Amino acid sequence: MTTSHAIRRAALGVATASAVVLLAACGGEKDTGTHAAHGAPAASATADAHNAQDVTFAQGMIPHHQQALEMARLAPGHASSTEVKALAARIEKAQDPEIRTMTGWLKSWGEEPPMTGMDHSRHGGMAGMSGMMSADDMTALENSEGADFDKKFLTLMITHHQGAVEMAHTEKAKGRDSRATKMADDVIAAQSAEIKQMKGLLGEK
């Protein structure tokens, strides 16, 4: 009886070990299949997901946003209107992260981001971009104070925003990367609302 019992225990141990090995093998096959199912398509989905318009949008909107930040950062020390100061702070809060996001896209696409730290308001190559301020415009804004600054800021920023909205509409029509076209939607929505607000502050309709 003792020998028979030992044989049965040994057989049970072998069967259990075999089951563990079989389950591990099945689990490994399942994991491999999961990686193949989820990994490969994701890689192919991101490949060639952008086009030349997406690159143009990011390379143009980065310096466009940077000039808006230059303008907005003048408000705390020059503006007299609390509404103008609040608007400038909101512009900075929205557009600074968008610059970092678009810079990341360009790097991931193997494209060259615009030079950081460049004074885009005075860079001749940017002057023809839709809504961009000239060097004279920026100098006049820097040299103004109080109510005069408020009026100049609002007038110039309306034009600046209108240029950004125009660029965003082009991206929506011709762009391919879903992240870039989504940002274009955000630019249109946010900046159109701010244009309406700024016109209201100027007493325009």
Rank of each mutant, 00 (worst) to 15 (best):
R8I: 15
R9A: 12
R9E: 15
R9S: 10
G13M: 07
T16S: 13
T16W: 05
A17I: 06
S18I: 10
L22A: 15
C26E: 03
G28N: 13
G28T: 07
K30N: 11
K30H: 13
K30S: 13
A36C: 10
H38N: 14
P41C: 07
S44D: 07
N51Q: 08
Q53S: 11
M61C: 07
I62D: 03
P63C: 03
H64S: 11
H64E: 09
H64R: 06
H65C: 13
M71S: 08
M71P: 08
P76Y: 09
H78S: 15
A79D: 03
S81R: 04
T82W: 01
A86N: 14
E92H: 12
A94D: 14
R100Q: 14
T101G: 02
L106R: 10
K107T: 14
S108D: 15
W109E: 03
G110D: 09
G117M: 09
D119R: 07
R122Y: 05
G124A: 13
A127E: 12
M129V: 08
S130K: 13
G131N: 05
S134W: 08
A135W: 06
A135D: 12
D136T: 07
M138I: 00
T139A: 10
T139N: 11
L141I: 04
D150P: 04
D150K: 08
K151N: 08
K152E: 02
F153I: 00
T155M: 02
L156C: 06
L156H: 05
L156F: 12
M157G: 05
H160F: 09
H161T: 02
Q162G: 06
G163Q: 00
A164E: 10
A164C: 10
V165M: 10
E166M: 06
H169L: 11
E171C: 06
A173F: 03
R179Y: 08
A180S: 15
K182N: 07
M183W: 00
M183T: 09
A184F: 04
D185Q: 13
D185W: 09
I188H: 07
I188W: 01
A193C: 11
K196N: 04
Q197G: 00
M198V: 01
K199D: 05
E204C: 00
